[in-house]
Design a protein around this nucleic acid. Structure first.
Lengths: 133, 133
DNA sequence: ACCCGATACCTTGTCATACAAGGTATCGGG
DNA sequence: CCCGATACCTTGTATGACAAGGTATCGGGT
């Protein structure tokens, strides 16, 4: 039967929230060293401690996009193996972009924090403020 | 002329990151007290301290969606004014949903933090780990 | 011998959402 | 008299996450 009971991997809502996050995650990992697609899948799972998830259908297109925009470079390697791997490495441009993404991420997080905080001590003490007729 | 120069409101990337956030923001505000659409627009701007932004084209459809799913209720009020306002109030269901959204938000933030942290001390000290042939 | 799961890559089609752009209507100034 | 602010709304476009499905190899199990 279809999974109605919560825990089953990331929820729809969560997925919506995660929008745009994947790029940050992938670039962050590649920033610590080159690796191939399938490896990234596993790494995110591990490093995200079950709270982050990236699907193949998301990852591969993203990698291609990042390559097209010159943020990463790809190279096939099959040396001691039959099944070749496509290794990705971050470029200088990619690092710049990552920096930007990080800033925007913390900005967003701070904005949310700020908002939730402001709400508590401003709105509650400051009623409708209906302009006098 | 079109605005090419940076600072002009939230960037495309940022917008991608903000996906799904708006719902959390709106419900959070409504949780502190009822208000009308146009007011929400201004409140987000204020409370978000310029780091958050919601556009009309985003807000109104969202409010309708939230109403349709019973998370908020609406009521027109035009008492001492000609131009009527549509006031929104959060429901019990909405509060439940908000709770969930908050959990998922902090979960995501924590996941990111965890990932970035793990990356620093795990990946860098732990080279490719190429399986021995 | 044969099938399966893991490894490894990829694609197409669907869905939801943010938003730009455009529209309606009232009021108070300049 | 027109404009900007207040206040609501809609349609169309872009994009990205993902489910589902596909290709190919290798090493077990039975």
């Amino acid at each position: 039967m279809s999974e109605l009971t919560g825990t089953a991997s990331v929820s729809r809502l969560r997925r919506e929230l995660a929008r745009g996050t994947v790029e940050l995650v992938v670039l962050s990992i590649l920033n610590t060293g080159r690796c191939y697609g399938y490896e990234l899948l596993k790494l995110v799972e591990q490093a995200g401690a079950g709270r982050l998830e990236v699907k193949e259908g998301t990852l591969y297109p993203l990698l291609h996009r990042l390559e097209d925009t010159g943020q990463i470079t790809a190279s096939w390697e099959a040396v001691g193996r039959t099944r070749p791997r496509k290794y990705y490495a971050i470029t200088a441009g990619g690092r710049g972009h990552l920096q930007m993404l990080r800033t925007e991420w913390t900005d967003l997080v701070n904005g949310m924090q700020q908002l939730l905080h402001t709400l508590d001590d401003a709105r509650l003490t400051d009623p409708p403020a209906e302009e006098a007729p």
